[in-house]
Every structure is written in structure tokens, then in C-alpha cells.
Simulated assay, not measured.
Amino acid sequence: MLDRRNLLAGISTSLALAACGRGIGTNADVLRVGSQKGGTKALMLASGALDGAPYKVEWSEFPAAQNLLEALGSSAVDLGLVGDAPFQFAYQAGSPIKAVGAQRSQARFPGALSIVVPAASPIRDGKGLKGKQVATTRGSVGHYLVLRSILDSGLTPQDVKIVFLSPSDSRAALQSGAVDAWSTWMPYIAAAQAEGDRIVVDGRQFSQGYGFEIAAESAIANKREQLADFLRREAKALTWADGHVDAFSAVLAKETGLPLDIARQTAEKNLRSRVPIDQAVIADQKVVLETFRRFGEVKSTRPLDEAFVLDV
């Protein structure tokens, strides 16, 4: 069994936002891109997709979508990839951001989004969460999964106590017994399984598999050409990753500190392709938004159609 402290340190440490603490940037020669741990940065470096780009990419890394969205909302970074649930959560909270690109998982991979429990836990499925405490990050895909699991299991919002924590704090809480379960995503799931934890709710049946490239409104106004070029290069990188899992995994392990086997699991379960933002994609997002609204997590009525830019 891997050493817990060393393994989780490699994927849960929140990197300082030194590169994104410079306020609103309009320098067209620099595109400031946020990346979640094991996300866009590793993909673009591994594929070489940025070779010859007519601008400099300045990277900042974040442990979760919530932190990345906060940086986008304050125009501390220009662009970043997040899941559909955190995007809807942040947008409805009034953040000055819009989706300029969309990606979708090529298949529903087991365990890419899941609720995990310690090996000795008596919990076996979603119904077993009744009366239990589940850790996750507020507004995340993990948060969305807990809500959908409650509905699917015939439970009420009062039946499950959701404890909002960062990924690293969630893991610590699960290890100490302060919470009973953790709703999370890759690569955290692979690391937890390597330590003996097991999945009790697999998110495949609930997740639509979308990720969105989110841009600050200031970047849309001032760096539209750079955004469009980056998205084209990223689409090529996604195609490259599909045929070069080993090479991608090696760079992913180096960038994140993950053991190579866990990096490979992460790479395999995050194979995606670019899809156009059209009315069908927007309609799919109503499911996410209405789930948050049903539980009172979102109260605003900001028009969903206005969250997307169709022509970048």
C-alpha cells in the first residue's frame, strides 16, 4: 500500500497563485491559463500543441475548479477548463465569466467521478449514505454527484449532511473518520483506491461528461484571437492524447508527482474531444442547473443562454 501522506501530497497541495496575482491583464502577448491539477497544463506540454504559438502562456495551477473559477471571476487568469457543475454554480452566482469552448468525455469511464468510503465502511450504495456525512467541494462536480445520488436513492436533502471542504481537507477528514464518505473526481479517486478505499456511487449515470473552457469577460474583450488560437491547439492536443496515452501519462506523472500507474488511470479516464457549443449542449446544462436549484443551492435566474459564447 502506498504511503498516504506522500501520495496525497502529490495531488492535493494548493499551489500559490503567484502567476495569477497581477490583476486584470490586457497584454495580448500573454495568455494566462489556469489548470486544475493534472489537467490542461500537462496535456498541452505533453502534446507540444503550444509550439510556435504567437503569444506566451502563463500557467497557474489549482487544486479544484472552485479555486480556478474564483481566479477567472477576478480576471486573475484569462482561461481555464472546469466541469459543467462548477461552471453553472459560479455563473449563477454572478461571476463575470462565459464558456468559450466545450469538451466531452469520449466514454463513461468507471470511477472517473465517484463517492468513495474507507474499505471497512458499512456503506454499500447511495441509500447507505442516509444519516451520514459526505465531504466534497462546494459547487463542484462532486457536490452535484451527491445531490443526484440523494435523488436517485429516494432520500431527502435532510438525510445526508454535506460537508464542504477542499480536496485535501476532504481526504484528511475521511482518513480521520470525521466524515463517512468523499465525493470527488480523478486523480483523487485513483489515489484513494490505491490506499484501499472503495467506490459506493459511480457517477457515470449522472454525469453528462462535459467540461467547459471558461474565459473571463475581460479576456473575451481583449484577447479573443489568443483564446481562439489556444482552443484550436487544445483540440489537437486532445486528439493526440487519445493515441499517446503512455506519453501523456509520463508527463502527467512528472507534472503532478503522481505515481505513473495512477497518472495512467487519470489519463485513460479523462480522454475527451472538443465539441461545438450549440443549443443541444446548452439544453443539457439545464439538468445541472435545475438540480442545484431544486436543492436551493442556486437561487438566481441568470439566463442560461447568456453563459456561452458560440463564435470564439
Rank of each mutant, 00 (worst) to 15 (best):
G94W: 06
A112N: 06
T26S: 15
F212I: 08
F292D: 02
I24K: 14
A64Q: 04
T266M: 14
R32M: 05
D261W: 10
Q66Y: 12
R224W: 09
A85G: 06
L43S: 09
V117Q: 01
A135Q: 03
A65D: 06
G34T: 03
L227Q: 00
T291Y: 02
R198V: 11
A46L: 08
Q193M: 11
A120K: 12
K127T: 15
A65E: 02
E58K: 04
A280P: 05
K127S: 14
L15G: 05
G243W: 06
Q265N: 15
A53L: 12
D51N: 12
V116P: 00
R272K: 13
A46H: 05
A173G: 08
A194D: 12
S183G: 15
A99Q: 02
G101E: 07
K223H: 07
V312E: 01
E217P: 04
T13S: 14
G131D: 11
P54H: 05
Q208S: 15
I199G: 03
R22G: 13
D311Y: 10
V77G: 00
R204G: 10
L227H: 00
D152S: 12
L165I: 14
A263D: 07
T239W: 12
F109N: 14
T136A: 08
V77F: 01
Q36I: 10
L310K: 08
D278W: 14
K41Q: 13
S153K: 03
D78M: 01
I24Y: 15
N270S: 14
R233D: 06
K56G: 06
A221G: 10
V298C: 12
A76M: 08
C20L: 05
T40K: 05
A18G: 11
L50S: 12
K127Q: 12
